[in-house]
Write a protein that binds this DNA or RNA. Structure first.
Lengths: 233, 233
DNA sequence: CGGCTCCAGATCCTATAGGATATTGCGTAC
DNA sequence: GTACGCAATATCCTATAGGATCTGGAGCCG
């Protein structure tokens, strides 16, 4: 009867663990896609997922429905789900055009609005991922991508426009770029170059580090272009 | 085994109707929210929906999961789903700040890029809703809101950036604004402003198109604010 | 060789049962 | 009169089985 209180956001925030299986499945499958464990176009068999994850169909169906809404999978009626394709060249250009339109603006707004606490958070995030391990691994690159995502999201948050922030988040740009980078075994080469950069940085050699990073970015660009071209066929 | 073909976008476009019950439920519930049949904060009982719609839980759960991803409902673990709240004052301001950043830019891009076919579509959409009834009714306003949504979406489409378009769509701004108010009499002014935008786009004048869109959104915001304030009491 | 039918497999949808959790109401103690 | 604890109910979440429908390929016929 008297349940008209809408101040339940605070109560929800108080719950650390979600206790809902669907969310775990959602994150799991999202991780599988993000880590390129499943390639684009792969069919996601619901029955197989029930066996592999050891749970029933219901939470898996809910997760896949949400993932479809996110654009990460595609539902083909009466045929099942498939992992959606990676970025095409055109989508890549669109995505960066959009980012070039939103993020500089968000940064300027953040510069106008941020107080000392905000700046502290930004600094903390910047410092939160500085140690690149000697042996570059798959996990380390993923951590780097996660850090990058948190950083950009924080800028949007400090801009003070929640609508813009959500809108930007829903592009899943980091996730798509992450998938792109890890396609076709390119990750290993990228990680090797990362190691060169790290080595140069640890040696305290600015010129060498700059050169390594420059060559890494150029190589990365060179690696990405043919991927766009092959996917455009 | 050999199902690695990625050209499935064209195949999907060939299927007009999906034949999947979940989509019908999704549209149905979305319509219930959009028409304010269910008020914000209302609990969406799954068992009740199974009885009312005469179907089982599975498609309803998938629909609700997608609606949650859209931000239209909120899932409270072990308590159920609720219709999400209407816009707060702050969200209202954020939304229009975002629109003022995106849509004028989109209009200018549309003015630059649009060919004759695009311009024909724009004109057709503009002419598709011209008769504003003397006595504004719920139905007429709903038709106006649908037209307004198509118009703004079309501008985003003509801007040629699918990322920006999807990002804008996912704000569901028209849906939220529709829920915010259904008074009457405002349609005529909005249609006049749409016409100014179309004229500028057809002239291929980016600056003029952006300015027209900007003034339209600002005017729209000014029209909605007082209504919003009265509802916030 | 092309076109057709039939069958196996996969998927979607339904139905039902049981465990887990939150809400509600009542009774008791202070 | 108020606060606390406890049981009953309702709801959500999970699990499992089975029918209906569609896809894909093998095999047969013209």
């Amino acid at each position: 009867m008297t349940d008209a209180h809408l101040g339940l956001a605070g109560q929800l925030a108080r719950l650390p663990q979600r206790q809902v299986l669907s969310d775990d499945v959602y994150e799991t499958v999202k991780g599988l896609i993000m880590d390129s464990v499943v390639e684009p176009g792969t069919r996601l068999n619901i029955d197989a997922l029930t066996r592999e994850l050891g749970i029933s169909q219901t939470p898996i169906r809910e997760s896949l429905a949400r993932l479809e809404s996110d654009g990460l999978v595609i539902k083909e009626p009466l045929r099942g789900y498939r992992v959606s394709s990676r970025l095409t060249r055109e989508e890549f250009e669109d995505l960066f055009e959009y980012r070039l339109h939103i993020e500089p603006w968000a940064a300027s707004r953040a510069a106008e609005r941020s107080g000392s606490e905000d700046l502290a958070r930004l600094k903390a995030e910047m410092l939160s991922y500085t140690d690149v391990p000697d042996r570059p691994s798959y996990e380390s690159y993923r951590a780097m991508a996660a850090h990058d995502q948190r950083f950009h999201d924080l800028v949007l948050e400090l801009a003070g426009n929640e609508t813009a922030r959500l809108s930007f988040q829903r592009t899943h740009c980091h996730l798509h770029l992450f998938r792109l980078y890890y396609g076709g075994g390119i990750a290993t080469k990228a990680l090797r170059e990362h190691k060169v950069v790290v080595t140069a940085v640890r040696k305290g050699n600015p010129e060498e580090a700059a050169a390594a990073m420059r060559s890494h970015i150029e190589a990365s660009r060179a690696r990405l272009r043919p991927i766009f071209d092959t996917l455009s066929d």
